[in-house]
Design a protein around this nucleic acid. Structure first.
Length: 473
DNA sequence: TGAAATGTTGGGGCG
DNA sequence: ACGCCCCAACATTTC
């Protein structure tokens, strides 16, 4: 029996532009496609991600089966399971695409060395980032800590490689290999089944990812500059979960964007793609950012502990309509519009004075696009404890943000229907509405919709005092 | 990838 | 007719 190559799928659940799979196919050897569910490390997948993963693996399974090489599913410590599959198949080698998170880097390094000791080849590829984290440096040779110069430098680099085609065929490995049944992993919620909203809003998988990118063509990109900040519009690409699971690669997105009509829309869009890149590079160079503030002076910050306040934020019951709309969109669909993420995150950290870590945990569990680097870097940005962070005194006013970015109230009315009949004038600040208007709209504050959990002005002052004290202390 | 407070300016009402 | 005041509207600074 010819010794196969194991194509180890990880955060690259696609056939097209998959460098490891491409190399495996080119080797001419039989291929064993393998996915390992490893829940043993820190930051294992949260609930929404697990739902997505199930669907995505199902899609990958079908696509690989169509090529005649079914996907093998195993569960457990990745190093241990991989060694078992290597032994069972007498594999000649293993190929994979790199994951640039600290735990994965350490694990993969040790796996690679173990494999080589056992005389099994091991080769890893870049299928996840446009630029290697070690290739983008400041003039003094240090990693970038500020986005703008990072972005400028990235745009001056040689263009990222063109996407690779999906393999037309893969040689099947003929012996039988045990595989878990996907259903046995219980990635999908059962009782209660909270995934209804996710199913309604998303179709995971490589085919759906490509279709989503196709929809986001010239006219959508032209509108991007105008609509991308308006949560009531479908102005953004909504590619984030597909990118998070590698159902589409940044190279595919990048080179498609290069074909679009040049202009502000494309530039703004590529900038967002580079934010993803920036976060990944930050995590690579500063591996502690998911758990520790990057700025030391935040280490002792007196975050409040307030379980009830946290719960109200999580459930979208803060009494600030734009915040509540966002948190409910997240709960229902596993996704939140970027503008609202900033407002809701700022509210947790500044208005409630709860730690960004609590927000990071909640987003990790509820977002279908949960990504360790993006989640950590962006929460630190909001909290002001990252390097290129929002200044501590920048406090979003949820009323003004609502009035500015959801002026017709479409977004709030969608997610906070109990305020739906209120006129635009009061929609973002129902507590200021005259009693007659509330009554006409069927709103009873404190009953059908909560009163504000904190007063904006007082909360703002409280935050400014706390943050200023930290700076001086 | 803010907001609020404070400062400045200029048009118009008004004595 | 003139100066005074009020207060938008805009600019600057402060948090």
């Amino acid at each position: 029996m010819e010794r196969p190559l194991i194509a180890w799928f990880r955060r690259d659940l696609r056939l097209a532009d998959n460098p490891a799979l491409h190399a495996a196919a080119a080797s001419g050897r039989p291929i064993v496609p393998l996915y390992i569910l490893d829940d043993t490390g820190p930051w294992s997948y949260g609930g929404a991600s697990r739902w997505w993963l199930h669907e995505s693996l199902k899609a990958l399974q079908a696509d690989l089966t169509a090529l005649g090489t079914p996907l093998i599913l195993r569960r457990g410590r990745a190093d241990k399971v991989l060694a078992e599959v290597v032994a069972e198949t007498k594999a000649a080698g293993v190929v994979w695409n790199r994951v640039y998170e600290p735990a994965a880097v350490a694990r993969d390094k040790s796996i690679k060395s173990d494999l080589k000791k056992a005389d099994v080849s091991a080769e890893s590829f870049n299928g996840a980032l446009l630029f290697e984290p070690w290739d983008l440096k400041t003039q003094s040779g240090t990693p970038f800590k500020v986005f703008t110069p990072f972005c400028r430098t990235a745009l001056k680099m040689p263009s990222p490689r063109e996407p690779l085609p999906a393999p037309k065929s893969l040689r099947r490995f003929e012996s039988k290999i045990a595989s878990d049944a996907l259903a046995s992993w219980n990635l999908q919620p059962s009782k209660p089944d909270w995934a209804k909203g996710l199913r309604e809003h998303w179709t995971p998988g490589e085919t759906a990812a490509a279709a989503r990118l196709d929809e986001f063509r010239d006219d959508a990109v032209a509108a991007y500059i105008k609509d991308r900040d308006l949560p009531g519009e479908t102005g953004t690409s909504r590619l984030s979960p597909y990118l998070a699971f590698g159902e589409i690669s940044p190279h595919q997105v990048w080179h498609r964007a290069a074909r679009w009509e040049p202009g502000g829309g494309v530039t703004g869009f590529l900038r967002q793609i580079l934010w993803r890149e920036f976060s990944a590079h930050l995590l690579y160079h500063f591996p502690q950012i998911p758990d520790q503030p990057l700025r030391d002076d935040f280490a002792e910050f007196p975050w409040r502990h307030d379980g009830e306040g946290l719960r109200l934020w999580q459930r979208g019951l803060t009494g600030y309509p734009i915040v509540d709309a966002g948190m409910r969109e997240l709960w229902h669909t596993g996704w939140m519009h970027n503008r609202v993420r900033m407002v809701a995150a700022s509210f947790l950290v500044k208005h409630l004075l709860l730690s960004w870590r609590e927000g990071e945990d909640w987003f990790w569990d509820t977002l279908v696009d949960a990504d360790l680097a993006n989640n950590a870097a962006n929460w630190q940005w909001v909290a002001g404890c990252g390097t290129d962070a929002a200044p501590y005194f920048r406090v979003f006013n949820p009323v003004l943000q609502g009035e500015k970015f959801d002026s017709d109230g479409a977004y709030v009315r969608r997610w906070v229907p109990e305020l739906g009949a209120l006129p635009d004038l009061w929609l973002h600040k129902p507590w200021e509405a005259p009693e007659a208007e509330l009554q006409a709209a069927g709103v009873v504050l404190g009953k059908t919709y909560p009163l504000p959990v904190v007063d904006h002005k007082a909360a703002r002052t409280r935050a400014l005092v706390a943050f200023a004290q930290m700076r001086s202390g």
